[in-house]
């Protein structure tokens, strides 16, 4: 494929004034990482794949469930029935949509240990996470390494996005210097979320990513973009950097440098807790499945082992994480993890 004549597949996109054949070629040789592949992530991954971005990394720690299908556009009933990890299901969908794209799925939690490696290998990062801790971590890594990233958030009918060009535009901590206290913010658990909100935010994120990939920095969003689709409110700010930003000015990467310990986090919208080991693990899932089979019913695949004990269900991944369903109590989840997975 030459830069002068992009394939028929992308002809309508390459016809657009700001892309053109040269821009289309830049997309083909470009790369993006989507961190978190729930609602926002699956919508942006689909757009990136259809538009011909040559290499896409998809990172997600979770597996597909029925309650995801209302808004997580890459997944279907078969994925939910089989409980396929979202990164794997997304990669399979991408291969069906556009076989020209190289997609790399990563079934993992994004941590200080792996985030720099993930973002260093791509031209742009798209936020698909559902929590602030990971966003601050991504912000630290992207600012440190000079990789642009595009924040996106969606709750109810409210959406927001911001494009972060390290050193040029405000970073996430310029706008929001400290993470909100746990439990003080609306989540998709408490406020619900409309598929249209997600798709609208994903549309902004994809468009910003493409501007970056084709090299049109002049038209990037200058600050925060926010809207409420139900109330018809919208907002675009032109923001400047915070003069004393701990991250992009003072270069203190506090989330990146955090001591990593075994963590438990509740999952947005679910009666479930994720327990993570404090360090990199590579579990032998087959051996784990055989061991647990003497205790209770086990199903397993190449990617996970699922095990029911009483009213709880543990889904254990090869990187040592477990999602404990049937409780919102972190100590119960940690106890079950210690008992059946080990610490």
């Amino acid at each position: 494929m030459s830069a002068e004549r992009p394939s028929e597949r992308y002809s309508r996109q390459a016809m657009f004034w700001a892309i053109g054949p040269a821009g289309q070629e830049r997309l083909r040789t470009g790369s993006a990482a989507v961190i978190g592949c729930g609602a926002l992530g699956s919508a942006t991954v689909e757009l990136l794949a259809r538009s011909g971005v040559g290499r896409i990394t998809v990172v997600d720690r979770d597996f597909v469930e029925l309650s995801n299908l209302q808004r997580q556009v890459l997944f279907d009933e078969a994925d939910a029935a089989a409980g396929v990890p979202k990164a794997i299901a997304a990669a399979q969908a991408v291969k069906r949509i556009n076989s020209e794209v190289a997609v790399q799925p990563l079934v993992a939690d994004v941590t200080p240990d792996n985030v720099e490696h993930i973002v260093s290998e791509v031209d742009v990062v798209l936020d698909g996470t559902d929590n602030f801790e990971t966003r601050y971590l991504v912000n630290d890594a992207c600012v440190k390494l000079g990789v642009p990233w595009i924040y996106g958030g969606a709750i109810g009918a409210t959406g927001m996005s911001m494009t972060i060009r390290p050193g040029e535009s405000p970073c996430f901590r310029c706008m929001f210097p400290v993470s909100p206290e746990p439990g003080t913010m609306a989540t998709c658990d408490t406020a619900g979320v409309l598929a249209s909100t997600v798709v609208a935010v994903a549309a902004i994120q994809w468009t910003e990513a493409v501007k970056i990939l084709v090299g049109d920095r002049e038209h990037l969003n200058p600050g925060l973009v926010g809207f409420d689709l139900w109330s018809n409110d919208h907002l675009v700010t032109k923001s400047s950097r915070a003069p004393e930003c701990p991250c992009c000015v003072q270069k203190r990467f506090e989330y990146l440098e955090a001591q990593v310990t075994s963590r438990a986090a509740s999952l947005c919208g679910r009666n479930a807790i994720q327990v993570s080991p404090g360090h990199d693990l590579k579990l032998d899932l087959a051996a784990m499945g055989r061991r647990l089979a003497s205790v209770g019913p086990v199903t397993s695949s190449d990617f996970l082992v699922r095990f029911t004990v009483g009213k709880h269900e543990l889904t254990i991944f090869a990187d040592g994480r477990a999602i404990v369903k049937g409780t919102s109590d972190k100590s119960v989840a940690r106890t079950l993890y210690a008992r059946y997975v080990g610490t």
Binding site: G159, C174, A242
Partner: peptide
């Protein structure tokens, strides 16, 4: 007026008539 006011300056930053103030809430889900 299109510049971020950081939290440590909320007490010290006095508003003037005609200022353009944007208050934007975090949106967390995804």
């Amino acid at each position: 007026n299109e510049a971020v006011v950081t939290k440590d300056r909320y007490d010290g930053h006095t508003l003037r008539p005609g200022d353009s103030v944007e208050i934007v809430a975090f949106v967390g889900g995804g």
